[in-house]
Design a protein around this nucleic acid. Sequence first.
DNA 1: CGGCTGTATCGACAGTCGTCGATACAGAAT
DNA 2: ATTCTGTATCGACGACTGTCGATACAGCCG
Lengths: 98, 98
Amino acid sequence: MDAAELSRMFKALSDPGRLRLLSLIASHEGGEACVCDLIGPFDVSQPTVSHHLKVLREAGPVGSERRGTWVYYWVLPEALAKLSALLQTPAVPAKVSG
Amino acid sequence: MDAAELSRMFKALSDPGRLRLLSLIASHEGGEACVCDLIGPFDVSQPTVSHHLKVLREAGPVGSERRGTWVYYWVLPEALAKLSALLQTPAVPAKVSG
DNA sequence: CGGCTGTATCGACAGTCGTCGATACAGAAT
DNA sequence: ATTCTGTATCGACGACTGTCGATACAGCCG
């Protein structure tokens, strides 16, 4: 994991809406939510929600799958754990600086 | 810590240059570095480095102090630890969603 | 004081981001 | 097949970001 990939992950988390999406997904029943569950709670349009979900998906911290009509999203704790570990260390360690 | 403040922290970490700055500061002798130590290793100009340092300072994860001619920067592990803790939990917990 | 060095701010510019409405695609039901 | 609903993509727009050169500010040294 280099600085570029790291920064991509952080960038995905740098939008309040995406943080709330992540939270909403994680706290949803069964640990997953379909897009239709995520559109209601937000003031933004459906395309915008879809866009944010795409950003999260491509950055790493969520997975998704189509099941018939609906598309479900869930949080990938491993991806978040990696970031967490990096922040815990003596502060962004040699892996990044090298 | 609400979603807006969280996102500000993440945004500060969402630039590869700032991540490397953070790493450089943390790994520097004594845990702190003056700006002059940070300009050399980068391809960007001094004003740009200064700008990134300001972003980091205002977002939280670094502190700074002028000592005579030089200005020193150091990492604030507590700020990073907060983020780390949030990412560790069942994934961006109730504090954010509420 | 005047000049020198380290750092910050300013103004400008290109590029990216979040957002939207319109539209296309996917699957289910009739 | 047609139609309906859920989701994704497209094209466009304003706002923000990273970057720079020029310049201002701060502190040291003659």
